[in-house]
Amino acid sequence: MKILNNLAKTKFWQSVFRTKLPLSTNLDRSLVIFNSLTLHIHPVKVRLRAIKFSYTFYLGMISFFLFFVLIVTGVLLMLYYQPAIPHAYRNMKDLEYVVSNGSFLRNMHRWSAHLMVISVFLHMLRVFYKGAYKPPREFNWIIGIVLLVSTLLLSYTGYLLPYDQLSYWAVTVGTNIVQYIPVAGKEIRFLLLGGNEIGEYTLVRFYVLHCVVLPLVMILLIAFHFWRIRKDGGLL
């Protein structure tokens, strides 16, 4: 503690964190929040009731942390992945057998994705039953719905990437539904698959959606979602 305190007194520390330790006054504690890019989305003071576990079950928070884990593991997985046939599948085998902790990484990514779908859905239910979507939070509810849909899409696009039987046929089933869309169903499916059947182009498209487009959308919407929580007077 003493070392930390001494460290906090150095010029370097202060140039980075702009906070003096120890935090003795409420002003100091406010400044921690204020001066930090990552923390400043919080208000300096929160209602005690709102931060109780029983109030929100922290479902939004859990969803966000799962998303964070997904980004970290996802970036690491991207290092070993080629969106090509049959390399994609062979990469999975490599992850399993050769890459250090490769299967652990993939397991983490897979299970957090599943859990995120569940936690986002539960978050929506919590918000609904608590009536937390009511004015003036109507629009944030819609953002939430879009986030739910993006979560599903992210999970779904990622499902194809191992390119094994499981993913191939799951995606086939899903994209077959798309062709029932009236008027332009076949065209939309073609656009999605980059062809009439799942193949190399589908893999590339799903890869770009999964690794670039949807995460970007997600990050922007999450930022907006958080910002709106504050602006609409909610405190987590």
């Binding site: 300096v44 003071k45 209602r47 005690l48």
Partner: peptide, 10 residues
């Protein structure tokens, strides 16, 4: 309603 400091409570 009772307010508390975000840091460290939250």
């Amino acid at each position: 309603e009772k307010l508390v400091m975000t840091f460290p409570n939250l």
